[in-house]
Amino acid sequence: MNMLESRNTVILSYFILGFAAFTALFPLALMLLNSLKTVPEIIASPLAPPEQLVWENYANAWKHSKFSRTFMNSAVLVFLTTALVLSTGSLTAYVLARKKIKTWALVTAYLLATTTAPIQLFLFPLYFGFAHLGLINNIFAVSVVYCAIYSPFSIMLLRTYFLAVPKELEEAALVDGATPWQVFSKVYLPLVWPGMLTVALIIGMYTWNEFLIATTFLQNQESRTAIVSYFLLSGQYETNWGELMAGAVLVVMPIIILFIFLQKKFIDGITGGSVKG
């Protein structure tokens, strides 16, 4: 759009947008700035620049949060969850997008219903069931829980990508003698991978950031995620805000970097399914 807007309108718009951007960034700027300061400096003024850069904050946060262990746990959890969601979700999304049979409408309705179910509705029996089966502190078991929670959203998003593939491609393949599995793996998968990547990013982010399930099911030091161990660290060392901010920077860094490099996919994924045309 290239409209002749009056200059004042544009300036005022930018001013408001800029103020909104400042609001969004201000706490994060404080986080970054104070992660390099000593506690007395922070107390003197959270806005002042550091007199000298206190990199030990990062080293201490890394050590006290056992990040070398917990980052790995988080990464494994992200990988397992994403792989599970993509493999099971893409199959379902394909069927829901392309096969018009009555029972599929029921499946869709069921999946949509589970997206609105509060976690507390199934958390308690799930926890005691897992405890009974000895699955507490089991990262793979938690990734299955995440898969169940994130699948409906992922399937609805993936479905739109499957719908965008011309039906003729499938029909041509079937005429040429392809099996359903071949149609899915040889025709569709190569065409919907941008959608898979988008879903992977969103699910990866959710999993990395998730707190309620993680803190409930992964309790010991060996299985804890980065978020949970940061939460516990911040409970213990409540006074050392410099170290806490350094820990915060460390935890958000992987997400922020991915987000900046793949922002278009993130925005696609975040808005996907929510905008009714």
Partner: peptide, 26 residues
């Protein structure tokens, strides 16, 4: 696009982190 990215920063950061930053710094 630039503004959208900035506005989404708080969203992509874990609630635990956001909570602690506000508690400690604000």
């Amino acid at each position: 696009t630039f503004f959208q990215i900035i506005y989404l920063f708080p969203l992509v950061i874990s609630a635990v982190i956001s909570a602690r930053v506000w508690q400690g710094m604000i």
